[in-house]
Design a binder for these strands. Sequence first.
DNA 1: GCCAACGTTGGC
DNA 2: GCCAACGTTGGC
Length: 140
Amino acid sequence: MPKHYWIVKQEPEAYSWEDFRKDKSADWTGVRNYQARNHLRAMQSGDLVFFYHSMTEKSIVGIAKVIRTAFADPTAEEGDWSAVTLAPLTPLGVPVSLGQIKADSVLQKMALVRNSRLSVSPVLGLEFEQILKLSRTKHP
DNA sequence: GCCAACGTTGGC
DNA sequence: GCCAACGTTGGC
């Protein structure tokens, strides 16, 4: 059982869930924000990670898994930055939109909503379950 | 395309 | 150490 849950954001035009699925795994590099970096460093092997499409889609589209914990980001030319390796686990049955998240009493307090600019944020167990529940439910 | 929120930088 | 200016991100 994973101990922690996370959410990472990505512009689908830059690197989509579909790209990720084809690659089978991806090094999560390029994070240049200390808060986000610290979240990367706190990830443990087997932790589950929601994959969020920002900008054009604004929806959680899949679940990934941490398969390698934090290591020095090879793309960083200077500074103390970290990366992890993620692998796609499963797409969500129905993507969960930011609109749904904001309308949900459990989810509207999510770090994702409170700080929309943070590219890596923690997700509570309760929030994780609630998102899974929404992803199994069709909505108009 | 605009703007709000946030982070970073640099002058004092 | 404070704060104004600037840059970046992402929602609308």
